[in-house]
Every structure is written in C-alpha cells, then in structure tokens.
Design a protein around this nucleic acid. Sequence first.
DNA 1: CTGCTGACTGGTA
DNA 2: GTACCAGCCAGCA
Length: 117
Amino acid sequence: MKKSANSQFTARVLSVVRRIPAGTVATYGDVAAAAGRPRAWRAVGNIMRDCRANDVPCHRVIAAAGGLGGYGGNLELKRSLLRAEGVLVSGSRIRDFSVRRWSPAQRRTRTGGTLSS
DNA sequence: CTGCTGACTGGTA
DNA sequence: GTACCAGCCAGCA
C-alpha cells in the first residue's frame, strides 16, 4: 500500500475546513474523514497548527466530543470566537456541540426552504 | 462535573 | 528513520 498520500490529504483538509460555516463546528475526526483519512485526525491537528491560510477557520475545528482542543497559546481566543458564533462553551467543552456539529456530507444546505434562523 | 497525566497513533518536515 | 504536534482515550484527583 502506498505509504504516502502526497500532500493531497493536507489540501483536502484545508478545503473541508474552509467549508465550515460560521456558528458550526467540526471535530478533527470529521474533517479527517471528509478529507479521506478518518484515522488521520492526528495529522489534521498538525495541519491546523500550520494553518497560515486565513481562509481556514482553525477555531471552528475542535477536538472530539466537543472539546476545545488547542490553539497555540491563545486557547481563550478560540473560546471567544466560538461563543461569538453562537456556540455555548463551558470550561473546555462545547455544551451544544450536538446541535452545532457540522456534517461534512451536507456541503450545501439548500432546497430553499426553511430558513428559520 | 472539570482538570491533568500518561500511553498510542498518524502525517509532516 | 527521527522528531514534532493544536488529539483521543482511559484513569485518577
């Protein structure tokens, strides 16, 4: 088996994260799975840390089970950003993660309809 | 419930 | 092949 996926995986991850809408959060596992490597959430964290692209909302990517994960040395900034988007954060965990979690398969919620927000 | 520690894994440089 | 890292899980305080 190929031991290397060329940095396609990296580009894929960045693309997925960029598609995360505000007010929504995704876990490293979800992003990794959407990138094609469900077991690479570990590498996803590395990529996020290297996220120089301002198009990549690293703060919308969180750890599993709604954990905040890390953010260089500005973890509090991540909490503020999430809260600013409407996400309830308690301690080091997101309480309404169940409703804020983003599904990579959705990609576009169109159909027009229901726009209750 | 929250917080920290320890051991493991996956990809990049 | 080695070292690094923003994670995850399990256990303990």
